[in-house]
């Protein structure tokens, strides 16, 4: 069997596995990155808000959403900002650390669930009504979330995440909705 000289650096493979856990930070990284997909808009400048969506993407990441490729990080952020409010939860994941030349890379396969605001507003609070409501509304409008959709997320991430989450480190981001609920107003 050919040895490619890319033996994973998981400590002493001959004897007991090292108790160093290379996957330790991945859970938190997934949590942080999925939260950026859900960030509420707080009247920042729209361009600034868009830049806060998944800032960990490398500028020329391979980004695929439901089988459609995106040319750049900026294009993805522009599109994502048009969505209504979302809520993501990571419910399962696994990862391999590949000893690639230079920086090692994590391959992450995660299962998430996501739901979408069905109150009729996008995340900037805009609705589609032609006539503004004549009734003053002092209370903020709460999201009215759909049932859960299922997502399979595959990412390639450099080992930089072990020291810093706020760095451009995602070279591949493949987001595929794999389950949709029986009843939802939001459609894919």
């Amino acid at each position: 069997m050919q040895n490619l000289g890319m033996t994973p650096q998981y400590g002493n493979r001959v004897g007991q596995p090292s108790m160093e856990d290379p996957t330790l930070k991945v859970d938190e990284f997934l949590k942080v990155t999925s939260e950026t997909l859900d960030l509420p808009y707080r009247n920042e400048a729209p361009d600034y808000y868009k830049s806060t969506i998944l800032p960990q993407l490398l500028p020329q990441s391979r980004i695929i959403i439901n089988g459609q490729p995106f040319g750049s990080k900026a294009q993805f952020q522009e599109l994502w900002s048009t969505l209504p409010s979302t809520q993501h939860q990571v419910i399962s994941f696994d990862t391999h650390l590949l000893p690639t030349p230079g920086e090692r890379q994590y391959i992450i396969l995660a299962r998430l669930k996501v739901r979408f605001d069905e109150s009729g507003r996008n995340r900037f609070g805009q609705n589609a009504d032609l006539q503004p409501s004549s009734m003053p509304n002092s209370r903020p409008i709460r999201p009215f979330y759909s049932n859960w959709f299922g997502v399979a997320l595959t990412m390639v991430v450099t080992e930089k995440i072990n020291t810093n989450f706020n760095t451009e480190c995602i070279s591949s981001f493949d987001y595929r909705i794999t389950e949709k609920p029986a009843h939802s107003t939001f459609a894919i």
Binding site: I65, N66, G67, Q68, N127, A128, D129, L130, I177, I188
Partner: peptide, 19 residues
């Protein structure tokens, strides 16, 4: 007409056609 149809579509449909 009471709503802007293109905005309704943007709000209630995932903006990427599934492939």
């Amino acid at each position: 007409q009471v709503r802007d149809e293109s905005k309704v579509n943007a709000i209630f449909n995932f903006p990427v056609a599934t492939k």
